[in-house]
């Protein structure tokens, strides 16, 4: 299509035909991602609202008791892992902007590694919860007595605890799903970066994906205190 005067020669190959120039294309992509993320805020917001209301209206300490079944230190370490992947992602965007191809490859690989590490950690946590009968269902809480100090938890409270774990598994599950999607896109971008000058030629795609990755991190930043730290 007829290139407008604003196109430089290099730019032309990067700009889709319906955009005037690279600036417009980048702006549109970023805006699109931000709108998608604001949509995601409401997606997680829906389940957070449900959680808040059930917690608010519950008449026993089942939610706090459920929360104290989780290991805050393990959760904290996992939070740190995810924050680290966010840092490396931010550095990857920086590397793309400053056209350091090697560094871009390195930081993307590190992001991928830390992201995977988070999921592995999370998997072990889930497995542990399965082992101590904290998965909602007919057998929920059957092993609670073995672990505690011998006091019997009332049936109503166990029911509320189960409610807590319904939220726990739904929220962490949805978060993990977002991680998996993110890791898949990240893997594709990494392969492209290893094979070509993708990313340093135009940092736009890396920057847009970075937003998504940081958002998934932000969701966890809230998931962590909401699920792990509210024990009173």
């Amino acid at each position: 299509m007829s290139p407008s005067a604003t196109h430089t020669h290099d730019e032309h190959a990067l700009v889709a035909h319906h955009f005037e120039n690279l600036e417009q294309q980048r702006g549109a992509n970023l805006l699109g991602m931000w709108l998608f993320l604001s949509s995601e805020v409401l997606f997680f917001g829906g389940i957070f609202t449900a959680y808040a209301m059930m917690r608010f209206s519950s008449t026993n300490n089942g939610f706090a008791l459920g929360s104290s079944q989780l290991n805050a230190v393990v959760g904290g370490i996992n939070t740190a892992v995810l924050l680290t992947s966010s840092l490396t992602m931010a550095l990857a965007v920086w590397a793309a902007q400053t056209k350091h191809r090697r560094l871009l490859q390195l930081f993307l690989s590190l992001t991928l590694a830390f992201g995977l590490a988070f999921l592995v950690f999370k998997g072990f946590e889930w497995y542990h919860e399965y082992e101590v009968s904290l998965v909602p269902g007919p057998t929920f809480g059957s092993k609670l007595a073995e672990k505690g100090d011998g006091t019997v938890i009332p049936a109503e409270t166990v029911k509320t605890m189960q409610m807590f774990f319904v939220f726990y598994f739904s929220i962490t599950g949805l978060h993990a799903l977002h991680m998996v999607v993110g890791l898949a896109v990240l893997a594709v971008q990494l392969v492209l970066c290893l094979q070509s000058d993708f990313g340093v030629r135009d940092y736009g795609p890396i920057e847009v994906f970075g937003l998504y990755w940081h958002f998934v991190d932000v969701v966890w930043i809230y998931v962590f205190p909401l699920l792990y730290l509210m024990r009173a």
Binding site: V73, G76, A80, L83, A90, W94, P225, L229, R231
Partner: peptide, 19 residues
């Protein structure tokens, strides 16, 4: 970025400690 990262880690440690 490094500075912000350290701040984030400190805040995480703080919130775990307080809880």
């Amino acid at each position: 970025y490094g500075f912000i990262y350290v701040l984030l880690l400190l805040l995480t440690a703080l919130t775990v400690y307080l809880a």
